[in-house]
């Protein structure tokens, strides 16, 4: 390899300039898909569903990004970032779809940066602080188990765009669930301390399970997965009593507004800027 050759190419133009960092290149799952809203599909409802699913993914990705430089091991740095990047990618596609069909023509950043907490429709489970690695892992297990089951249904959605986004997401979410399940088993079985922390994490997540099960009936499927994992981990399946209110109607915990303040601060300080 010639030093100068490799070196000089950096300063030149590149044809693959859309791929700026390793891992950000992705196949466009919407390539060749008809983006018109199919007959008989309510555009308003479809847009609201896309925003809801995007909000879940964006808020989860933001929490996963907070682990950066704080993970217990380098392999976990890489894995948690992978999962965060997948969810961020899902959010971007879903916001883009919402913008195509809700009549506003908004882009992804308008949804992410210029709506307030009360306008977000993510579940409260996603916005809770990371806590320790046990809580983050349990939360990821619950969230990815639900989202995978839900996305599997969505692959048959009448909107071909949403169906394509879901089909891409299913592959990603299967990995997220596997990663989380393996860790919950390790932590449940590992040491006295890891067992205690994981048991507590399950209890902390339990009240937030109910609001996940609002559309499509995936509850039985998700509960079966959680039972299988907690059994393998030797942990009791948590009993949940649903909390009043729901993130789905814009009722959030006190943790969402600060999360959004951090996410949106620079964009809002420079509304005229392009990045």
């Amino acid at each position: 390899m010639s030093d100068d050759h490799v070196y000089m190419t950096l300063a030149e133009g590149h044809e693959d300039d859309t791929r700026w960092a390793y891992g950000t290149g992705f196949e466009d799952p919407l390539h060749g898909v008809d983006t018109a809203v199919p007959d008989g599909v309510d555009a308003g409802e479809l847009a609201a569903l896309c925003v809801t699913l995007a909000d879940d993914a964006l808020v989860s990705a933001q929490r996963l990004a907070e682990w950066t430089t704080r993970a217990p091991e380098l392999e976990e740095e890489v894995a948690l970032a992978n999962i965060g990047l997948d969810l961020l990618g899902q959010a971007r596609l879903l916001y883009a779809r919402a913008g195509q069909i809700d009549g506003t023509g908004r882009g992804e950043d308008a949804y992410a940066y210029f709506r307030d907490a009360g306008d977000f429709r993510n579940v409260r489970l996603a916005e809770l602080p990371n806590g320790d690695f046990a809580f983050s892992t349990v939360r990821l297990l619950v969230f990815s188990s639900w989202r995978l089951a839900y996305f599997e249904r969505l692959t048959a959605h009448r909107d071909p765009v949403l169906a394509a986004i879901a089909a891409k997401g299913v592959k990603e979410l299967a990995y997220h669930r596997q990663y989380a399940a393996e860790w919950v088993v390790r932590l449940g079985d590992g040491t006295e301390e890891s067992r205690r922390r994981t048991r507590r994490a399950l209890e902390q997540a339990a009240p937030y399970l109910g609001e996940l099960f609002t559309a499509y009936d995936v509850r039985d499927e998700v509960v079966a997965v959680l039972r299988q994992v907690t059994d393998a981990a030797g942990l009791p399946m948590p009993v949940y009593r649903p909390l009043p209110g729901s993130g789905r109607t814009g009722e959030h915990t006190e943790h969402l507004a600060p999360l959004l303040a951090e996410l949106q601060g620079i964009a809002r300080a420079h509304p005229e800027a392009t990045w």
């Binding site: 960092a21 950000t24 990004a65 992978n82 990047l85 971007r92 916001y95 950043d109 951090e262």
Partner: peptide
């Protein structure tokens, strides 16, 4: 990463920092 002012920049920076790990 958590403060990046667009989703595209957020994804790029997230991927970059992951590369470093």
């Amino acid at each position: 990463i958590t403060r990046a002012p667009s989703l595209r920049r957020k994804a790029i920076l997230f991927a970059k920092v992951q590369d470093e790990a």
